[in-house]
Design a binder for these strands. Structure first.
Lengths: 258, 258
DNA sequence: AACTAACGACTGGTCTGACCAGCAAACCAG
DNA sequence: CTGGTTTGCTGGTCAGACCAGTCGTTAGTT
């Protein structure tokens, strides 16, 4: 029996409407890159269409590269941009550490805007997600007796990502994401060190708390300032660590008779 | 009962194999542009696959623009002249104009920062280069009797790029560059229209002049504001043009008896 | 207790046969 | 000849079935 579910019929053919609807959901952040979509059976039931039509809709998304599907597993939202590990910038970073600060400069700008938008545009469910990420991070930072820097870094990243996604600007999410990837892949070692220094960790915790409060309480300008200060202080810490490493390296070089 | 027609199973999933096979037939000239394909029932029988799979295959071709289908008529091979360049999230831009504003939002932020940095950090030689680009652009805009929109767009872009480079932040240059590419490749037609509208062109000229002066005179905040206003006004203009095009498209659809 | 093999409950992939909706040519009454 | 109706095609959609990977759990073995 053909259905007349208005929402999916108005625009055009059913499968095209399905594809458009799913794309919207992705843009709205309901389905996020890397996330597993509901199963075909569930989706077709939810959208009130047959699985055949649903599948045709999914197929157009697949051919556009928006989702990836594997039998037995499901469909996941593809990351909007494949970050080429060998990007033109990577070389700059290896050869010229000063670009690290250039990177942080741009990131500050984007993180600040992102926090501000999250505070002003964030929905209730965004705040729930942000809170969850924040709690996970705090729980681990305070609960664990031995801290795995890599894991903490991941939780930290998750927290910032949640805030960014609450900005409801996919372009912003994407841009910030790729810059973060760049940062992590170039100075990951230093970032790890950051979490090993008790003084740095304390400061980071305080800044996270301020940022978190500003965002969930919907105070854009406060959120922006908190993000900016957070980033700039991280920049300083990273600078110290880099300098330290260079001193170590140079003394090692002297030891080796250079 | 599932079939095991070797020819269509070896490579991959059935519908993909179908799409590939049909593309081959088109390339071989068996089906020519403009020609009506056999009906779905006939094709599915001929290729020994179910109509559902055949339809998924056809849908892939449709989303690639290889065929066009109308209910009650059939599917015809599209003239395969224009091969549009494909990007993962290009489709999102075409199908969801709202992301255009997300893009402009981020670009404004970066252009503003870029202008501000250029004003505060720019060296004498930076100012020389910026001035040169600005002059080239103004000379062409005022001197030529017939204006080539594409050339003007290139000069415009060169001006903004010179400013961005004066910020002395390679990361900023790179990020802004990639966003600009994205913008141009998604709405290039609209951008061109921008230069064809006398009112828009005048406004752009005035804004360029203000931005230029602020930068070379070393006034960061003024430069940022000029850039922001420039971008936001361009956003408005693009919005108008897009809306106009949609109106044209819709009336064309009515003409065709949709 | 630790490993492994088998099970079961998912997932997507495919098939079938049915009915609806649009189109066009054949047909028939005026 | 003209205009409306019938008829048989087309794609569009649906429900329900079964096949085929995947993964967590559980029962059996070592």
């Amino acid at each position: 029996m053909p259905r007349y579910h208005e929402e999916l019929r108005i625009t055009s053919r059913t499968p095209d409407a399905i594809a458009a609807r799913l794309e919207e959901l992705i843009l709205d952040g309901v389905f996020r890159p890397g996330q597993l979509l509901p199963s075909e059976r569930r989706l077709s039931e939810r959208l009130q269409v047959s699985r055949a039509s649903l599948r045709e809709g999914l197929r157009t998304l697949r051919s556009k590269g928006v989702i990836e599907t594997r039998q037995g597993r499901g469909s996941v939202v593809a990351s909007l941009v494949a970050t080429p590990l060998d990007s033109p910038l990577m070389h700059l970073f290896r050869d010229h550490p000063r670009t690290l600060f250039d990177l942080l400069e741009v990131r500050s700008l984007l993180e600040g805007e992102s926090a501000s938008l999250a505070a002003s545009r964030g929905t209730a469910s965004d705040r729930v997600l942000i809170t969850r990420r924040y709690q996970e991070m705090v729980d681990y930072a305070e609960g664990a007796e031995t801290i795995d820097a890599e894991r903490l870094a991941r939780l930290d990243h998750g927290f910032h990502l949640a805030i960014c996604q609450a900005s409801h600007n996919p372009v912003l999410v994407h841009t910030l994401q790729s810059l973060t990837d760049l940062l992590l892949s170039s100075v990951f070692a230093s970032v790890k060190n950051l979490y090993h220094r008790p003084r740095s960790r304390e400061m980071i915790n305080r800044q996270h708390a301020r940022l978190y409060r500003a965002v969930v309480e919907g105070k854009p300008e406060l959120a922006r300032r908190a993000a900016l200060e957070h980033l700039s202080s991280i920049g300083e810490q990273l600078g110290e660590i880099e300098a330290e490493e260079q001193r170590l390296e140079r003394s090692a070089m002297r030891l080796e008779g250079w």
